[in-house]
């Protein structure tokens, strides 16, 4: 693992180089929104943002993806599928929480079942992390085994030390490769500065997520009815969640399309017969909570939440899943 100090100018040069050799995606402004998009000009790469509106999952698990297409070739029916160019892809400015979420995706798409579409994109991508110095009030990564400067899942981590200097910490070989031959050795002072920044950032994260260990026992509790009442069953929290991976398949003409789906939607569980086991809002909301904090943990040993706080910030009616999970045991004892 190497550590380096690079200047803002160096970073710009690196970005310029990467634009030529690879597909470069980085956060940029679109109106008031911060979204990852292909970089056309290194000047447009945006550093001063708490987090992008949409998580980076969209580049590995696109909102809409053609899996295959039926074709007629020489009078015979065959299938063909689209493959993205096998060019290196650099995703620049990924926050540690989002990087961690991809490890959860790996558990799902690179576990028992290998999803070639996902893996293809995963293999060619390099994740350049940007440490979080200014977490928001809605962030709660610390309580979920992550942190504003966590390195898990990243290939390289950049920390803005202020004064136009950046500490670059190589994590994997493919990450280090990007910064080869630039910058200078880091000194003790810079390492201390980085530690200070990390501690300061950690202090800013006050929200904690503490699901009760016996969450399963509340399954039938009327609590879910009460807390889900204001939920409007839209897909904002699930679509903007870096760890939500539910999808559906449909045919559009001859194309088989995979697209994001959300457990908040009533038709999510609707069956051909018309039966819908999760017709009621409370059952759908409960599903979301349990999938994250119970089922995923049971299956993969970890809570499927990285504490990025997007669902809290973007919910149209301010449903606070952290509050709901934390409160659930207290509420039980009260009744």
């Amino acid at each position: 693992m190497t550590e380096k100090i690079v200047s803002k100018e160096d970073l710009k040069k690196i970005l310029e180089g990467l634009m030529k050799t690879s597909e470069l995606l980085a956060p940029g402004k679109e109106g008031d929104l911060v979204l990852f998009k292909p970089v056309k000009n290194p000047e447009e790469v945006f550093f001063a943002y708490p987090n992008s509106l949409k998580p980076v999952k969209e580049f590995f698990f696109p909102p809409r993806e053609e899996l295959f297409k039926h074709e007629i070739r020489e009078g015979k029916v065959g299938l063909s599928s689209e493959h993205q160019e096998n060019r290196k892809r650099v995703i620049w400015g990924v926050r540690p929480c989002d990087a961690k979420s991809l490890l959860m995706f790996d558990k799902m798409f690179d576990g028992e079942y290998k999803d070639s579409y996902y893996l293809e994109k995963r293999a060619k991508s390099v994740l350049v992390g940007l440490a979080c110095n200014e977490p928001l009030d809605s962030c709660f990564c610390l309580s979920l085994n992550a942190g504003p400067h966590a390195k898990e899942g990243l290939d390289v981590l950049i920390t803005d030390l202020g004064d136009d200097s950046y500490l670059v910490e190589g994590i994997t070989a493919k990450g280090e490769e990007l910064f080869q031959g630039c910058g200078k050795e880091s000194g003790e002072g810079e390492r201390t500065r980085k530690k200070e920044l990390e501690e300061a950032a950690k202090k800013k994260i006050r929200k904690t997520c503490q699901p009760p260990p016996d969450l399963e026992s509340f399954f039938e509790d009327p609590y879910w009815e009460k807390v889900s009442r204001k939920c409007i069953s839209c897909g904002v929290c699930t679509y903007l969640c870096p760890t939500c991976f539910c999808f559906d398949l449909s045919y559009e003409g001859r194309d088989c399309i995979r697209f994001w789906d959300s457990c908040s939607f009533s038709p999510f569980t609707k069956m051909t017969s018309g039966e819908n086991p999760r017709r009621e809002k409370k059952t759908r909301y409960r599903q979301r909570v349990y999938h994250k904090f119970s089922y995923f943990k049971k299956n993969f040993g970890e809570i499927a939440c990285v504490g990025c706080g997007r669902c809290l910030r973007e919910c149209p009616v301010k449903v606070d899943i952290v509050e709901i999970v934390n409160q659930c045991s207290k509420d039980k004892t009260k009744d």
Partner: peptide
């Protein structure tokens, strides 16, 4: 930009 979250409809 629409992500088909249907928040517009639900709200």
């Amino acid at each position: 930009r629409c992500i088909k979250c249907y928040a517009c409809r639900q709200v």
